[in-house]
Amino acid sequence: MIAVDSYAYNNNLKSVHPAEKSLFVMLTMGVCLASSTMITPLIVLAVMAGGIILKAGIPTRVLIKLMTVPLAFLLISMLTIVFSVSTNSSGFWLAQTYNGFTIGIRYPDLMTAANLFLRSLGAVSCLYFLALTTPLTELITVLHKLKVPFIITELMVLIYRFIFVFMETATAIRRAQYSRSGYISVNSSFRSMSRLFSALLGKVFVKSQDLYNSMAARCYTGEIKVLTKKRPVSFKNYFIIAVIEIPLILLNLLWR
C-alpha cells in the first residue's frame, strides 16, 4: 500500500461523509481556478494545508513532499509564459538583445505566470486533500450516486489497482538488480534501467492477465462492486463549507 492510500484509510477525517469532502474540494477548486487575483489561491492553499495537517492529522513532511511533485511541470510552464522573444525591444521589463532579437520578461507576463502558478498549486492542494482523506472506494460510491457511467468507474478502479501492481513489480526488479551490483556505475545504471523497463512490460502484462482471471473466477460480470461504510451526514459540515466558500466567492467578485 502506497503512502497516499495508507493515509486515506487512516486519518482524522475518514469518518466524514465522502460527498461532503467531494463537494468542499470541487467548490474550492472551482473558485481557485476562476480567481483573477493571487490572494484567493494563497487562501485556498492555506485552507487545504490546514485541513490536511491540522484536521486530518497528515504529517507536514508528507504534504511538502507531495507538493514538490508538480513543481517541475509548473516551473517549465511558467518559463514559457514569462520569457518572450521579439524583434521589438520596447515593453520589456528585463531584456537582453542578441543579433536583433530581444529575449526578456514583460511585467504583465510575469504577473500572469505567477497567477497561473498559484492557481495550479491551489488546485493541486485541493486534489491532495481529497486523495489523502478519502479512500477510492468511497469516491466510487459518490460517482455512482452522481450517475457516472460504470465503465468510467471501473477503469478508475483497475488503473488504481495497477498502480500498486506496477510499483510492486518495479521495486522487486530494482531490488534484485541492486543485489547484483546493477547500479554500481553510470553505464551499468543505464543498462540496468533499460532492462528494468523491458522486463517490467512483460511482467505487468502477465499480472494483468492473472488479475482478470482472478476476477473471472469470482463471477466478474462486467461490473466491479465495492463495499463501503455508510457515513453520517453532518449539516454542521455543510455550514462550514458555506462559511468558507461564500467569502472566497465574494473575494473573487469584489477584487475583480
Rank of each mutant, 00 (worst) to 15 (best):
D5C: 06
Y9G: 00
K14D: 05
P18T: 01
K21F: 06
L27I: 13
M29R: 03
V31A: 10
L33D: 03
T37I: 01
I39M: 12
G50Y: 10
V62H: 07
L63E: 00
I76T: 14
I76Y: 08
L79P: 00
I81N: 06
F83H: 10
S84F: 03
S84V: 13
Y98S: 12
G100A: 02
F101Y: 15
R106S: 12
Y107V: 08
P108N: 11
L110S: 04
T112P: 01
N115C: 06
L118Q: 01
L118I: 08
L121E: 08
T134R: 02
L136P: 00
L136C: 06
L143C: 04
L143W: 00
L143K: 00
K147L: 05
I152D: 09
R161Q: 13
F164N: 14
E168V: 02
A170L: 13
A172C: 03
R175Q: 14
Y178E: 15
Y178R: 15
G182T: 07
Y183E: 11
I184N: 10
S185C: 08
V186R: 14
S192T: 10
F197H: 13
G202W: 05
K203H: 03
V204I: 15
N213E: 15
A217F: 01
Y220W: 09
G222Q: 07
E223N: 11
E223K: 14
L227E: 12
T228C: 13
T228Y: 03
K230R: 12
K230T: 12
R231W: 00
S234R: 15
K236C: 06
N237F: 14
F239R: 10
F239S: 07
E245S: 08
E245P: 02
I246N: 01
L248I: 05
